[in-house]
Design a protein around this nucleic acid. Structure first.
Lengths: 362, 362
DNA sequence: GATTCTCCTTGAACCGTTTTAAGCGATTGC
DNA sequence: GCAATCGCTTAAAACGGTTCAAGGAGAATC
């Protein structure tokens, strides 16, 4: 650090001497405004002055104080990301996308993990607005969160991730969940499954509701004779542990299905673990289909058939969207980006026995 | 929002009217300093005044501007977390621990992902110090990063996570990597493995170096007759994809080992995938041991033997440490917390053929 | 040589808080 | 009855930047 060489006293800050723009100015023999220009509008300075100031900045290791900057400019290059479960690789990938896009634009991301709780979500929204972030990227735990609207009233821009912006003044980046649901159902139906268990989270989780809707939609299109029977089972938390417990109990009370559609891959992994423990073969006796197609799906005990969602791209696009809104508010128009999910077939799904028999006959 | 009722003009901010402390003061008929006191030191105000001001604050939905506050007070309840790879569940869990501890203390976390690059690490350190975060939690990509020292010089408190604080004025929370390495080696050695491949990241990654040191230490304690031969192989990135490619090539050029010690579980999964593809049985032909014991280790294709590290606790402890330092700088003394790793045996390791034969004989 | 024009640079105002010394009315002490 | 004390409240000075109107030094024009 340069501080010992500097002729005038630096400011005491947290017990340490830190250079301010004033110190740079004095050292470089220019005015304070010139230093500011060197940082923000180098093109207005004479090349000689610019170089001189830059050298001093470099030597002193000067970094402009973001708070002061923000106070004056009303901007701070911070966005918030609010997700229900960062341990889920889907959201991890999404967060990575957000981070990379933010980094490229010299923004910074505050990560908030709500554990699927609306209460924690609201607390985080309060904290984020106190921090005065420029924008918030959120995958809301529930569809009806009035706190979301009040955030936009405070001038904080909002974008919904993995959700359409229902009635909100906001951009959204989502995956077509309804189509994803229908992909899963159709796959099992075509393999001959007629009794299917739907193992998801609480109904008020938007993604869950949409996929269920897609499944029902797809059901209608299937002739009555071939139409599967659906049973629903709700987990308190969309985690492997929760699915493991529930499926173990289910096995004990008797299995009345040949296929499971899971709310995400973690649930699928938990279920498969339960089956393995009880010596029920996947996919021979039960087919399991996951959702998200996380990286591990391929390395799993039984490589998972899953519905692939572009998590990283989702996050990247969302961050780009909100950052462009922050940089250019007047020109911005809210938009809705929708990605399409894809079915990835691996080893955890197979035709039912009767279906195989039928195939041989015909 | 109150803004339409207020008699004087609010400040235009991001296209939206936002109340400042001045507006509150005017509305409540008190001075600006009194409002500040109502917020920060309610005990100095007369109860009547306090109630009056609080009511106005409530009605206006006033939230103090964090930038101004930070500028003046030098505190902002923000800490930074810098990790090499957030996609790695080890760091995800760690980040979750940090987040939970921060949330409990009403702090907020800026997440920074460096992709194991010192350059990106330094850029993030600059951004974080510009943001004036109160503290930084970091798992440095390399041991020798001079930028770290300069951060503390700027009055930003530092704590090292998953690393001891080598010569730095900082707390640290770490896992005994050297012991972890010896655990892995001893396990394979006891299973009869005499040719072991070490599949890790670059040597200058501190954790890698320490574990290697632990392995060499353990080797020395083994009698020459039983001492395994170690070959090292370095990956550019500690990811499944990288391990997969390298091991596939290795298989083609001939396998001269019966066991692999991997730098983390992702590497182990990538390696196992390569073996499976080439029809080499794990653990019958090759034993594989991972590191970190991520949640998924148990659900993997071949359930992974691994060295378990308390990632969540690591993060939680680190965050608590730095937050207590921020809240009480003068009373704080730097400390070093060390967790012990544990060996978790699953199915990816087994005795070598000759070892099994020996066992039968004896 | 005076005038205009360009190109840089400067000084001062301002952003919204916190903090502290000073002020002020009421109460207490002598 | 006057000074000292007490309990609140206030005014004003930071904090560290950005921004912009105004100033000043040369170069170009007349």
């Amino acid at each position: 650090m340069y501080r010992f060489k500097c002729s005038i006293g630096f400011v005491q800050f947290r017990g340490v001497l830190v250079a301010s723009i004033r110190d740079v100015a004095k050292e470089a023999g220019v005015s304070l405004g010139t230093v500011s220009n060197a940082i923000n509008r180098p093109e207005v300075l004479a090349p000689r002055t610019l170089r001189k100031v830059q050298k001093v900045i470099e030597d002193m290791g000067f970094v402009p104080n973001a708070s002061a900057r923000n106070l004056r400019a009303g901007r701070n290059r911070v966005i918030g990301l609010v997700v229900p479960d960062i341990s889920n690789p889907f959201f991890t990938d999404l967060a990575k996308g957000v981070n990379d896009a933010a980094f490229a634009a010299k923004y910074v991301v505050i990560l908030c993990n709500t554990d699927e709780s609306t209460e924690k979500e609201n607390q985080y929204l309060d904290v984020l607005s106190a921090q005065n972030v420029e924008g918030i990227l959120i995958t809301p735990a529930r569809d009806t969160n009035r706190a979301l609207a009040s955030v936009t009233e405070k001038g904080i821009r909002l974008a919904l991730v993995d959700r359409p912006a229902l009635g909100l003044q906001a951009c959204s980046v989502a995956v077509n969940d309804s189509y994803g649901g229908s992909l899963a159902l159709t796959h099992l139906q075509e393999l001959g499954h007629r009794n299917i268990l739907l193992l998801t989270g609480k109904e008020d989780i938007p993604q869950v509701a949409d996929r269920n809707a897609g499944i029902r939609e797809a059901l209608k299109k299937i002739s009555a004779a071939e139409r599967p029977e659906i049973t629903e089972l709700r987990l308190d938390s969309m985690s492997a542990a929760s699915a493991y417990e529930v499926i173990k109990r289910k096995i004990d009370s008797g299995i009345d299905f040949t296929g499971i559609i899971c709310g995400n891959d973690l649930i699928a992994l938990g279920a498969i673990r339960a089956f393995r423990e009880k010596n029920i073969a996947v996919p021979e006796e039960v087919s399991v289909i996951g959702y998200d197609d996380i990286d591990f799906a391929d390395s799993a005990n039984v490589p998972l058939t899953s519905i692939s969602q572009p998590a990283y791209e989702l996050g990247y696009a969302a961050a780009e969207l909100i950052i462009s809104e922050c940089e250019n508010p007047e020109r911005h128009v809210h938009q809705r980006i929708e990605f399409q999910p894809r079915l990835i077939v691996r080893s955890s799904t197979a035709p039912t026995k009767s279906h195989r028999a039928n195939l041989k006959i015909s």
